[in-house]
Amino acid sequence: MTKTPDRPQVPSLEIHDLTVAYHQKPVLWGIDISITSGRLVGIVGPNGAGKSTLIKACMGLLPLSSGWVKFFGEPFSRAATRIGYVPQRESVDWDFPVNVMDVVLMGRYGRLGLLRRPGKADREIARQCLEKVQMLPYANRQISNLSGGQQQRVFLARALAQEADLYFMDEPFAGVDAATEAAIVAVLRELRDQGKTILVVHHDLPTARQYFDDLVLLNMRLVAYGKTEDVFTAELLQKTYGGRLTILSEVASALGTAR
């Protein structure tokens, strides 16, 4: 069922038999995935399919019922500084008393370790990351004064400041304007071209097809993983979204127009 292309090097991310349960009810069952570096991977599936749960479980934010996850051949605790994360925008309080620069500097904290404070070099990196997402003029803004798209760009800049090799992004395109969406996609492709691995939780199928090299189709179990052109088929999508006719008909029409 899982289509993993044969590649010799150590995979960036290897998930083995991962099971996660909330209150004894399993949300993810026996997931096996192995992802090599330099891929831009979309994770798609219906609501409640466990997309966010998958990436949170990978980073140890949720307890695993079974299985293990390795990054570059090492457990998360040893590879933490090589991993970047963009959480869902709604997961934080945007009234929090910090400005844009403070938030981006947080991306450096993991590397600094305990007790050390961010220095000049870190500020310079943060500034470059803000420049990359075109948010440098807002560096001193309080974060509650930002639009949704700007907030997402700040989160992206923070993840860039982590200078990671593998990125997890939880719905980075949710509720942002078209310009921000395009800017984020451009940054993701640039990262991919630098040989980094990016996993993006995404809920919009038509754009998923355009944006990602590989797709993970998820609905409690792993339905399929492979190159987008291989797995974006009516049959596999039906398996993923099984029974949800409205979504299916929408996608079918999208497929019809695309092919």
């Binding site: 069952w29 019922s65 609905n219």
Partner: peptide, 13 residues
């Protein structure tokens, strides 16, 4: 010991 789900549920596969 919480019972580990051994097999996949029928409806998901």
């Amino acid at each position: 010991k919480p019972a580990k789900p051994g097999t996949a549920p029928a409806e998901a596969s």
